[in-house]
Amino acid sequence: MLDPYILQQLAIGLSLGMIYALMAIGFTLIFGVLNVVNFAHGEIYTIGAFAGLMVISVFGPPLLVVLFIALATGALAGFGLERLAFRPFRRFSDEASLKSRAMREATLMSSLAMSIIAREAMEMIFGSQFQSVDLAYLINKPIGIGPITIVNGDLIIFGITVVMLGGLQWLLKKSPVGLSIRAVSNNALGAKYCGINTDRTIIITFVIGSAMGALAGILVGLYYGAIFPSMGFTPGIKAFVAMVMGGLSSIPGAVISAIILGLSESLSTSFMSSVWSDMVAYAFLLLTLIFFPQGLFGARRERV
């Protein structure tokens, strides 16, 4: 039988990993479709948390409504982000410019600019300190299971993530929208020649990815009771790490890597100080890049 302490850490690590997975899906979807990194994803997460917080402090609706509003805000933010930071740089749609470095760097910087603007705006409106969250909404009520204690947030996060992942898999594999997303990510130009509206598909991808990111934000905000304008930075980097470890465009890979990351981070605290636990993620990233350059689950690439 495992040590109860280890079991406890496994439970924490699993919910941490689920959160990273929700974030990493957004990154991976957008990278898969556009082949660019969306630096503003961390801010989408923060926006989701703040939207939930505002709804809680103004109306105080049931938790499910709060989560839906966070989802909707994330979707809206994703739509706006695509319009402002990505659409203007897709002036030409031939293959060379779709894959060109110049366009990739331009969107990298423009999403970065958007993230700076969003973060600074939130800091100006709400102040940079922690926001107080209504205690009734916090999802950290302890539940004892045998020798270990988990909080109800662990179960909620686990349940919601599994539902979202299942839904996403269904959407991608069975629905026409998912078909067009997969087509565009496979070959944007080819998809266009087959009559797929690539612009609309890209917007849908952004909406789905951002909605998931925003949901992760409000869940974490309620789980830890800490909502502040720069909260999106660290999870954003972790999700990025998970995406790279998973092989850049593989969603199941990203999810598994995110869970591995969460588990190893929480387990690492049993033999070293918790301030170093972030080091584990970066060490994983470097080792993956050096020894498995195409990611743990990625398709074989010619050169990496």
Partner: peptide, 10 residues
């Protein structure tokens, strides 16, 4: 001012 810096960058 930081927002303006972001806007200039964009």
């Amino acid at each position: 001012r930081n927002i303006i810096v972001g806007l200039v960058m964009f």
